[in-house]
Write a protein that binds this DNA or RNA. Sequence first.
DNA 1: CTTACGGCCTGGGTGC
DNA 2: TGCACCCAGGCCGTAA
Length: 315
Amino acid sequence: MPELPEVETVARGLAAVLAGRRITAVRLGITDFMEDPEALRRELPGCRIEGVQRYGKYLLLHLAPANGSGACGCLLVHMGMTGQLVLEPAAAPLPPHTHAVFALDNGCRLRYTDVRRFGRLFLATAEDLETKLAPLGADPLETSEAEFCVRLACRRAMIKALLLDQHTLRGLGNIYADESLWHARIHPTSPAWRLGHKRLVRLYRAVRRVLRDAIRCRGSSISDYRDAAGRMGSYQQRHRVYGREGKPCFRCHAKIRRILVAGRGSYYCPRCQRAPGISSRSAPSVRFIAQQGGGYRARLRTGCSLISGARSNHP
DNA sequence: CTTACGGCCTGGGTGC
DNA sequence: TGCACCCAGGCCGTAA
């Protein structure tokens, strides 16, 4: 399940090798998950790959047109749950469920393999790119503590749902949301606005630490994930809660639980991550907000308006 | 507008 | 052996 760290790992792996390469041929298999397969077949051959970029969970291959004329395009790849984008010698045998093969001018090929076909392949114009990417929220690794808090502090939804919501923050998925909440000792069903500034800061730091560590480990390989060279990541060995139902918490040895939050299986420690509203001692609640006085709320208000203004000028 | 929820995509794994 | 069913995660439409 490629989330931010996995897509970042793939993007880095591809950027090193793909920059400057030309696509010589395109071969497609099952195309029902591509928006316009004909456009891929028609437009891609001859294109030069200018660069590779990650945006949330999207991978962007920036393209220069075949003969130097015409509009620049961008191949947008979302790897869904089981997508793999792998660069390998053209002679390697193609694994099952390979649905797109891009031959390159250096004898290598880039293949897209996806068992579930929950991924997306899309040839985008600058305009398409704007439509797709502008609504996405902030990148947790490029966001300041203040902006992170402002985006969440005025929301009434459950914190786990918000971490998963790509319009609030881009790049987090189920694994890293759960891991971050464990590190920050926050219960997944806590309403965001009840967390208070202190916990939001803790969450901000946890999210960034988890994502950075996961990138360092080249991502988590739960089932299908492989990097651009076809290698597994190793962050699954560092998972503290994800997939560990019934096993002891690394901090307190309580049994990890699994509940459904926002329709997703969510793992947490019932002792370290207290349910909201149960312990009046630890709940931030109304008293906390009252203590902060108008200053805190005023900062939220101005912050919110700043954000909504800044939202429209994404790349 | 915000939030909650259900359904959809697909096929591997499980249990009978 | 075969079959039905559950589930994964992102995203979208709908309803409150």
